[in-house]
Design a protein around this nucleic acid. Structure first.
Lengths: 217, 217
DNA sequence: GGAGTAATTGACCGGTCGGCCAGTTTATGG
DNA sequence: CCATAAACTGGCCGACCGGTCAATTACTCC
C-alpha cells in the first residue's frame, strides 16, 4: 500500500554511487530494508522480491550475501539482541545488588525499548512465532539479575518473601507490554506528548512495584 | 513437519459419517483446523490447502462457508474474544469497586488465559500484526475496570496517588506476558507441576502489586 | 416426487513464491 | 597485466498461493 517506489526508493537504498561496488554497503542496504519490512509484516508476509526492491538491489544479491530469507531474518534479530545484551550485561556485572541498581536496570530496559521500537516489534514476532533463539543468553542475563536482587534482599532493602525470579519477570513484562500494546491501546490514555506519556508510565510503575497499591492503614 | 495425515487425520476432522451432509459440522471442522494452524503458524504461514486437508474437507468449502482466508481468521479471533468479553463484563458491571473485586478480576483474567492457551497465542499474533480489531470493546472493558478501581480508591482501600489506568494495565501485562513468554522462558524456573507453577506466579504477583517489594522499615 | 436450494467437489486460473544458475562486471593482488 | 575471486545481473524454475467456476450431489419443503 505504501510502496510508492518503483525501482529506487527515496530513503534507504544504496543508490549513492551506483557504478562503484561496495559489498558492505549492499549488505547494510539489504539489512535495513529487510528490517523495515520484516518488522512490519513478519517473515512470511515479506517476499524477498520486496526487500530487494526496497533496498535497490537484485533479489539474487540477498541470497548471495545471506544465503536465505530466514538467515537474513535471524541476522537482524541477532543484531538487535546483541546491542541489548551488551548494555544490560555491563550494568549488571561487577556490581553489588541493591534497590537502586534494580531501579536503574529497569529504567535502562525501558529506555532501550523506547529508543528501539524495532526491537519491540521483533519481540512480538518472536512470541508469535515461538522463536527460542538466543534464549541461552537471555537465561544468562536473567540469572545475573536474580543474583543482584537476592543481594538486595540480603542487604535488607527488599522483601525476602518474594521470589526474585518473579520480581524480575514482572519488570520485564511491564516494560515490554507497554510498548507492545501501545499502538493498540493508546486510545485509552489521555492524548499528549508521547515522551511524557512514557515517562509518566515508568514513573508510576516503579512506584507501584516498590510500594504496592494498597492504601497505608 | 508434523503433518502425518494424507487425507483424513485422526483427531479433529469431520470424518464421522462421511456420506451424510452436515454443514454445521463442516463449519466447525474448518474452524477448529484453522484455529490450530493459524495459532501455530500465523495467517501468512498457513495455506488454505493445509487447513482443508487438516479438516478433511475441500479447499473450496472454506471459501464457501467463510468467504476468504482472512474472514476465517477474523471469525476465530472474534469467537475467542467474545468469550472473554462476556466473562469479564459480567464480573465488572453492577458491582461496587473494591480491592477484593480487583483481585478477583485479575485472577479471573489469569485463569481465563491459563485455560485458553489459544487465546494467548491469538494475542501474540495480534500484537505482531498490529491488529486493532475489537479495540472498541477492549476500551469499554478497560474503562469499566478503571471506574471500579477509582471506587476502591475513594473507599480508601487503594492508594489514590496512582493512576488507575496504569494499575489496570499493569495487571493485564503481568498476566498476559507470563503465558506469552512461558514457552520460551520456562527454563528459568524450577521444573515441576505446571499448574502449581502458574498458581505460585499469580499468588506472588498479586502480593507484589498490592504491597510492593520494598522491605518495611 | 419433483423443484429449488445449499453443500460439495475437483479442475483450473493468473500470479507470486524462494531459490538457482549461467554469465557479466568489477576489484584484488601477485 | 593478467588470473582469480568476489560482486552482481537477469532470466528462469517448479511449486504453491488464494480464489473461482461449472458441474454434481444431497437435503428440504411443498
Amino acid at each position: 500500500m505504501t510502496d510508492s517506489s518503483t525501482t529506487a526508493s527515496a530513503s534507504a537504498d544504496k543508490a549513492t554511487d551506483r557504478r562503484r561496488r561496495d559489498p558492505e554497503a549492499t549488505r547494510q542496504a539489504i539489512l535495513d530494508a529487510a528490517e523495515t519490512l520484516f518488522v512490519e509484516h513478519g517473515l512470511d508476509g515479506t517476499p524477498t522480491s520486496r526487500i530487494a526492491r526496497h533496498a535497490g538491489v537484485t533479489k539474487s544479491l540477498i541470497h548471495h550475501h545471506f544465503g536465505s530469507k530466514e538467515a537474513l531474518w535471524t541476522e537482524i534479530k541477532e543484531r538487535h539482541w546483541a546491542a541489548y545484551y551488551a548494555l544490560q550485561k555491563a550494568m549488571l556485572q561487577n556490581t553489588r545488588g541493591s534497590a537502586a541498581l534494580l531501579e536503574a536496570s529497569i529504567r535502562a530496559y525501558f529506555d532501550f525499548l523506547r529508543t528501539h521500537p524495532d526491537m519491540v516489534r521483533i519481540f512480538s514476532w518472536r512470541f508469535a512465532e515461538e522463536d527460542h533463539s538466543s534464549v541461552t543468553q537471555e537465561v544468562e542475563l536473567f540469572q545475573l539479575g536474580v543474583e543482584r536482587i537476592q543481594e538486595a534482599q540480603e542487604a535488607g532493602e527488599l522483601r525476602e518473601d518474594i521470589d526474585p525470579t518473579y520480581v524480575l519477570k514482572s519488570f520485564l513484562a511491564l516494560c515490554l507490554h507497554w510498548f507492545q500494546s501501545h499502538g493498540m491501546t493508546c486510545s485509552m490514555f489521555p492524548p499528549g506528548d508521547e515522551r511524557a506519556s512514557h515517562d509518566r508510565y515508568i514513573q508510576q510503575i516503579v512506584g507501584l512495584i516498590f510500594d504496592g497499591i494498597r492504601a497505608p492503614d
